[in-house]
Computed example of a mutant assay.
Amino acid sequence: MKLTLKLALCASLLAVAGCDETLGGYPADKTIDRGIDSKHLSQLQWGIWVDPRGCDTWIADDGLEGYMVRRLDKHGKPVCSGVAPPTHTAGHFKGGSRIPDPN
């Protein structure tokens, strides 16, 4: 049992070691979804999830992956707009990708 646990731990560490997304020592571009259906994150439909303290978090779900980004003002402080009650969401964030405007 101990050998199986050690092998599983080593395998999981090796799997996570490949998750480093750096290019030349700098972080990779985090605005691009690198999944099977890769796209720029601006093409997703975003909504707002209100955390238990009442502050907003941008949220998007494209079916396979989900994204959450703290909503901040221009000074870096959290935005607490009151758009929804705490722990609720607002917006159609489960819509996946938006259809690009042909114009």
Rank of each mutant, 00 (worst) to 15 (best):
D56K: 02
H92D: 12
L23A: 11
P52Y: 12
D73N: 15
T87A: 02
H75T: 15
K39W: 07
D20F: 09
R71I: 06
D56F: 03
M68R: 14
K74N: 14
A15H: 03
G96E: 05
A11L: 04
D29H: 11
V69H: 12
T31L: 15
R34V: 08
I99D: 08
I32Q: 13
G25V: 00
D61P: 01
P86Q: 02
D29V: 01
S38N: 14
G24H: 00
T31R: 15
H75S: 12
R34H: 10
A28L: 12
S38G: 13
L5A: 13
Y26I: 03
R98Q: 13
A28F: 03
G76D: 09
V83I: 11
S97M: 04
Y67R: 03
I32L: 14
E65P: 00
I99C: 03
R98W: 03
K39F: 12
S38Y: 14
V69R: 10
K30D: 05
L7Q: 01
D29E: 14
R53K: 10
V83R: 02
L3P: 12
D33P: 04
G95H: 00
I59Q: 12
T31G: 10
S38V: 07
E21F: 00
F93S: 01
D56L: 06
S42F: 07
S81D: 11
H40M: 07
P27I: 03
W46N: 01
G66V: 04
L72F: 07
A28S: 04
L7G: 05
V79A: 08
G95L: 02
A11D: 09
A28I: 00
V16C: 05
C80I: 08
L13V: 10
K2Y: 15
L3V: 14
T89C: 02
P52K: 15
H75N: 14
D37I: 14
D29M: 11
G35D: 13
S42K: 13
S38L: 05
G47Y: 02
V50I: 15
D101K: 10
R70I: 05
G95E: 03
W46A: 01
I99Y: 10
L13I: 11
I99R: 08
L13Y: 00
I99W: 04
I48V: 14
I59D: 01
G63H: 13
K39A: 12
R53W: 07
K30Y: 11
S97Q: 05
